[in-house]
Simulated scan of single mutants.
Amino acid sequence: MMTYEQRVIAELDRWEDELLKPTGLLQSVSKRVQTKINRAIPAKVQQTLTSTVRGIVRSVLFGLEYVPKQPPLLGISLQERDERARALLSTYQKIAAAEGAGTGAGGIVLGLVDFPALIAIKMKFLFELAHIYGYRTTDYRERLFLLYLFQLAFSAPERRKELLWKIKHWERVASELPPEREYLQQIDWEQFQREYRDAIDFRKMLQLVPLIGAVVGAWANYGLIEELGVVASNGYRMRILEANKAT
């Protein structure tokens, strides 16, 4: 009989294969539609979205407002961590769905408000998840790890291999990191927000449609949190299993 850790390793192998699978026809068509949508968005709106993403990411890396009051959990099994992670994900899916339904019912103006609100919900979820898996988010490197998880969940397919490599080899990557402010200067903020927006475009655009906006907003936010939760949990599971191999 396989141990829990062996089952997780098998799950991670399947997940990694699925994550790195070449882009299919439907995704290619969707990408072309998204590109046309992006070109139709006024430059001022693009700049506002980029500034919003930059501001939230800066607050994540430099501030401590998202750091949970409870210390990281220590001395528990991976199985128990996974169970707590699933419970946390369920809670945040409900929070995000309620927020999406409220802004979706308000039309275009409130739909645009949902963009930064949803990012904030995702970041708070990631911080709490880190503590469930035993990592202290007062450390700048751990907050940067959260950022890589966020990017992997919503990045373009061609960037996933690079991001996954960094997550799988985080101890090596973290040891070579530049100081905080120097790292921030290296981020391509336009690309960051564009990839994130591309990943949610179709669902979030439907949220702006009158009459169905509330239903679509709840559905979109619920699914987006689930996608982030799967990537983030698997990222932490990889780190824990890798650390266990080294001991």
Rank of each mutant, 00 (worst) to 15 (best):
M2E: 14
E5D: 14
E5K: 14
E5I: 07
E5L: 08
R7W: 00
A10W: 09
A10Y: 11
R14K: 12
R14D: 15
E16M: 06
E18Q: 12
K21P: 00
K21M: 05
L26Q: 12
S30N: 11
K31D: 14
R32E: 01
R32K: 04
R32Y: 05
Q34Y: 03
K36L: 06
R39A: 04
P42Y: 06
V45R: 06
V45F: 01
V53Y: 12
R54A: 09
V57I: 13
S59H: 00
V60L: 00
V60W: 00
L61E: 00
E65N: 10
Y66N: 00
Y66I: 00
V67N: 08
Q70K: 14
Q70P: 09
Q70S: 14
L74M: 10
G75R: 06
I76D: 09
S77N: 08
L78H: 03
Q79D: 08
Q79K: 13
Q79Y: 05
E80K: 12
E80C: 03
R81I: 07
D82G: 10
E83K: 10
A85P: 01
S90E: 09
T91M: 09
K94C: 10
A98M: 09
G102R: 15
G104N: 08
A105Y: 02
A105K: 01
G106E: 02
I108P: 12
V109F: 09
L112T: 12
F115C: 06
P116V: 11
L118V: 11
L118W: 09
K122T: 07
K122M: 14
K122H: 09
M123Y: 06
K124A: 04
F125Y: 11
F125W: 03
L126Y: 01
E128D: 14
I132K: 12
Y133W: 13
Y135F: 15
Y140I: 00
Y140H: 02
E142W: 02
L144W: 02
F145Q: 15
L146V: 00
L149E: 02
L149W: 01
L152W: 04
S155K: 05
E158L: 01
R160A: 05
K161S: 08
E162F: 04
E162W: 05
L163E: 03
W165K: 03
K168P: 01
K168R: 07
R172P: 05
S175L: 09
L177W: 15
L177R: 15
Y183G: 01
L184P: 01
L184A: 04
I187N: 06
D188I: 09
F192E: 12
Q193M: 06
R194T: 08
E195K: 14
E195R: 15
Y196W: 11
R197M: 10
R197F: 11
D201F: 13
D201L: 15
D201G: 01
D201T: 15
F202T: 13
R203N: 10
L208F: 08
L211S: 07
L211H: 13
A214H: 05
A214R: 11
V215I: 12
V215W: 08
G217F: 02
A218C: 03
N221G: 08
Y222L: 04
I225E: 04
E226C: 08
V230F: 08
A232T: 01
A232Y: 03
A232Q: 00
A232M: 00
S233L: 10
N234S: 04
G235S: 07
G235N: 11
R239L: 15
R239E: 10
E242C: 01
N244L: 15
A246F: 06
